[in-house]
Design a protein around this nucleic acid. Sequence first.
DNA 1: CTAAAATCCTGGTGGC
DNA 2: TGCCACCAGGATTTTA
Length: 265
Amino acid sequence: MPELPEVETIVRALRKPLVGRSFSKVTVLWPNSIKTCVKTLKSELPGKKIQSIERRGKYLRFNLSDNHTLFLHLKMSGDLLVASKNDASDPYARTIFSFKDGNELRFRDTRKFGSVHLVKNVNKVIGNLGPEPLDKSLTAQSFIELFQNRRGTLKPLLLDQTFIAGLGNIYVDESCFLSKIRPTKKVERIKPKELMTLYKAIQKVLTKAIKHNGSSFDSVYRGGNFQNHFAVYGRTNEPCIKCKSLIKRVILGGRSTHFCPNCQK
DNA sequence: CTAAAATCCTGGTGGC
DNA sequence: TGCCACCAGGATTTTA
């Protein structure tokens, strides 16, 4: 399930082969992936040039000529591969973006949750996203202020992309472990000092994960190996790396949640 | 406001 | 060995 570090890894890998290229054709193999008008996508994209590629939260953002922006979201099982049109076809390719030079960008997505958006106004896609956890503008002070007047359970709040953008199930659990805070804790009971610790933990976990090119599992593989560094995620009933207590698993907001009952308060 | 449940999907898993 | 019910899970929508 690609989260911020996986999307960042993919964006970095796509820049070299794609920036400067112009689209020639779009082949839509699973129309439900396209969240904007399919006809418009097919008629407008050909001829547009990729000027730059960025990440915003878990979205890939392609800044195109003529003030258009293409957004891709990988959701659970999406991946992006650059291939030649002569390469073997991919049964899980849902949208194929062809370029004039014979190469293509293949949006593959086994579970079909991913999305494609072609817009002029970027706010239609990313207008409600919360701050970037690794952006310099998110200071410790402004991070703590995000929690003002918020109530409820910590984990669902951190998963809320309008609260903070880019965190998913894995990195929330890992950040909570590193900050020694239980994901089940009520945010109104978390002290500013603990929030400071959480702020640093989120940055540390994400930075380390990016350094490892993200995590490789489910259907996404980018050579990342951060999955070998999980402290709690997927380690139910295994000993805590710090204290040997058995890692607990509970369901929170419908998602499996892992924590050390001894280290995390 | 918080939050739970349903929704979209399919490969993998566990039970028998 | 084979069949099948079941499940994860990001974000959105619906319902409380």
